[in-house]
Design a protein around this nucleic acid. Sequence first.
DNA 1: AAACTTCCTAGCAG
DNA 2: ACTGCTAGGAAGT
Length: 402
Amino acid sequence: MLRFQKLSFKRGELFLSNVLQCGQAFRWIFHEKLGQYSSTLKIDGEFKILVLKQDQDDHIEYATVGNVEERALREFLHRYFRLEVDMSTLYREQWLPRDSRFEQKRPNGVRILGQDAWETLVSYICSSNNNISRITKMCHALCTEFGNSVGHYDGVDYFSFPTSHEIVARASEDALRTLGFGYRAKYIVATAHKMEKDRLNMSDSEYLESWKDHLQYEQVREKIMSFNGVGPKVADCVCLSGLRMDDVVPVDVHIARIAQRDYKFSARKQDIEELQREYKSLPITHKKVNYELDLIRSMFKQRWGDFAGWAQGIVFAQEVGKTTGANSDGTTYKRKLELDLVVKLEKDDVPFKRHYSEVETVAVSDGIKVEVTHEDVLTEETEYSVTGRPKRKATKNVGYEF
DNA sequence: AAACTTCCTAGCAG
DNA sequence: ACTGCTAGGAAGT
């Protein structure tokens, strides 16, 4: 039996269900019966099986399979979930004053994870032109095929995420293609080779992290983009989640659509030309960069400030609004969002709690569809908070239904 | 420089 | 059964 410990935080700062399987991390397994998430993570330099669960909005519970020193574990979790970042304050002091669209948004416990840099790089190479379901399968395949056995828990074997050395030694383009990586197979192999050659005596992640200390964002991105299969979007994801560069906004098709639709963005010719002059001196970036997308990136950075990447995470989660993840039986499902709302209507009303699921919804509030009856009219004064976990009932759909 | 096309694959609609 | 399309892009032309 696992011994679970509590890790507390300010109410609403973290909801595992909105963070672990929404396309940011790809290796968390959800155990239907236990209501737990598990994965292997490198804690204090060694991969361990970590189990998490949450049924309150002000703490999570954690346990490891096998011994990990308590202090190191808590430090790891604090760093992984970036608990030093206070989202409610950011929301109140940064995003809301700078962007009135945030009046219609809440953080909902969506956070940017501080992940292992090398794993982030490889995972996001897999993500190109791909859906979350398949990315998840690919990341798991990398570990089971080329990683090391870490242990066993609740009927599942766990493996480490392979180092560049292990990928070079154990994988090949052919093997990866057979595993379903498609044209990304050669990117993975080439990236692992380059990493193995460049990192010298450092570990993969130490090498990537070393750039952050003495280089500006533009140069760090440049370095990351020098890996095969890594363009601006993937590099920005590595900056944000792998290197904890909180102001970086990765611009994918969704964010580009939001910029145009909600922020009426359109690139001015003058701005594009200025940007081209700026990039002239950089050897790689100006070849891979899409100037329009890059202008969107800088627009959001300017608008949202030092934690623009986190604001992007909230906006993105609301836009996509679904989670997909692996189950302990090896299947990968798209989950439907399910939540409990604590609704306080008029000021003299007693708050009440009510369960909602996406299926039965009609009205939209905060990007969450809510069924509203005649007796509970949501107004601008309505206070609500979201608790609960994703519904475990699966659909086979891949795609967005909003 | 910018605007194409191609690259794997699974799932789904028509 | 078959085609066409799409899904957190990047590389090649």
